[in-house]
Design a protein around this nucleic acid. Structure first.
Lengths: 250, 250
DNA sequence: TAAGTTGTTCTCAGATTGAGTTGTTCTCAA
DNA sequence: TTGAGAACAACTCAATCTGAGAACAACTTA
């Protein structure tokens, strides 16, 4: 029986309920380290564990809208600053036993944000914070959120290769060095400053100069840096390839 | 209120029902053209339109398992041949009005299959066929399936760049020319045969020689070609970049 | 003012790519 | 049987891209 036939003579109340939620893997960079927005669970199951911000999709709301709403609720963000956050769908997680209480299909999203203020405690008793991704192991994470986070991090790493989304971790105007530090933080290893500079400026539409420079040189010296803003490219051609890992295979 | 609090005191029956379905964008290559598995709808809405194979997720079934089951049902495929089909999650589509009857969130999947027999008519009255993707326009397609197909095709094109999945369109043993024809078909333009050959053999783990050759030369002449099978790489390093389109940007 | 840091540009060797050529093996048709 | 054309596979060569390092001026702090 096809979906369509099924639905035609279908009363929702007769069918085993499936809940649809949206979860958000929200990434930002603070003090040179990649941070993740997490919420400490107060109640069982997984009380005391960390979980991704998320919740039910509202009846009249698109999936992406739901994710953005959840992000706004947990960060206290709104308006222009919320709009500047990059949000994309990551994937759906629907193993039958992923939530012990009922069947829950979660549509996970991935967000890139510039450094944001600490989350404000909202009506929840739950505590929300930015945590360094290095401080996590899957033992402390609720449900299958460890896997979702892993998938999100891998997606983030590869997105930096072929899209200009690294700029979304920064303020509207930034220096090439700041941009390089985003790559180094997300990819987890240093890049050659000169080659990175050449590459960024040679890829069409990646960044455009503002004509301005920073007010001061670096904290420990050096000249003022030129300021850039994001260009209008959606894809980087050619891409910035991250150095091949040893284990090319599998 | 967070997802977890919500669920804790939650009775599914109180909440507006959301249906979760899986749909499959199944691609294959027939006679040098990319084909898509589609089903002609008998009943409204969208009667007479083409739709993706799909249906409800069963209560104890993972999302990927549901997609593979739907694919099996529509193609009549099973066993080893079904197992050889590449299946991955494409994304979820959940606009509130995408189905006029109720809220349906569809988890779309993407499948790459070697040339398969024509679908057998199953218990449905619905007619399933492989259709050339060039023969489609979104006017003939049900729901938002036109958009899902577009997303699937773009994903397929980019997957060929950095994964060895082109081999999944072919029999277990294939020639370099057959592999090149997969790329040409999916990308929609011809490639330089010599350079392609060099590249395929130089990327570690892409293909491995079997030692054997084809029984005969090409239909219109030429020597026998060496046979290869897929190697053990999951990613191609370095990738096979498709020639930059004119509109690099946006 | 000296010493050290950093943004930016340059150089150069090595690798990769795009385009074309060559040689050989094969099929088909005269 | 042979000639014509097709196609696999290997090669050449110039243009481009990359990785690694060096140079240098503009800045900082001590």
């Amino acid at each position: 029986m096809s979906e369509q036939d099924f639905l035609a003579g279908y009363d929702p109340r007769d069918y085993p309920a499936v809940a649809v939620t949206v979860d958000v893997v929200a990434l930002t960079i603070r003090e040179g380290a990649l941070h993740l927005l997490l919420i400490r669970r107060g109640a069982p199951p997984y009380a005391g564990h960390w979980a991704l911000p998320g919740g039910f999709v509202h009846p009249d709301e698109d999936l992406a809208a739901g994710a953005r709403r959840e992000l706004a609720e947990e960060t206290g963000l709104g308006g222009e600053r919320l709009r500047r956050v990059h949000l994309e769908q990551l994937g759906s997680y629907g193993a039958p036993d992923r939530d012990p209480r009922m069947r829950v299909v979660s549509v996970a999203h991935l967000a890139f944000a510039p450094d944001l203020p600490d989350p404000v405690a909202d009506t929840d008793a739950d505590e929300a914070t930015w945590l360094p991704v290095t401080a996590l192991n899957s033992r402390q994470l609720a449900f299958d959120h460890g896997r979702i986070i892993d998938d999100g991090l891998e997606r983030a790493r590869s997105k930096l290769e072929y899209t200009p989304l690294a700029t979304r971790f920064l303020a509207p105007e930034f220096t090439v060095t700041e941009l390089r530090e985003v790559y180094e933080t997300v990819w987890g290893h240093p890049l050659h400053a000169g080659n990175f500079h050449r590459k960024v400026l040679s890829v069409p539409g990646f960044v455009e100069g503002t004509g301005a420079s920073t007010e001061r040189g670096g904290a420990r010296g050096g000249p003022r840096a030129k300021l850039y803003r994001a260009g209008d490219a959606r894809l980087l051609h050619p891409a910035l390839l991250r150095p091949a890992r040893e284990e090319t295979v599998r």
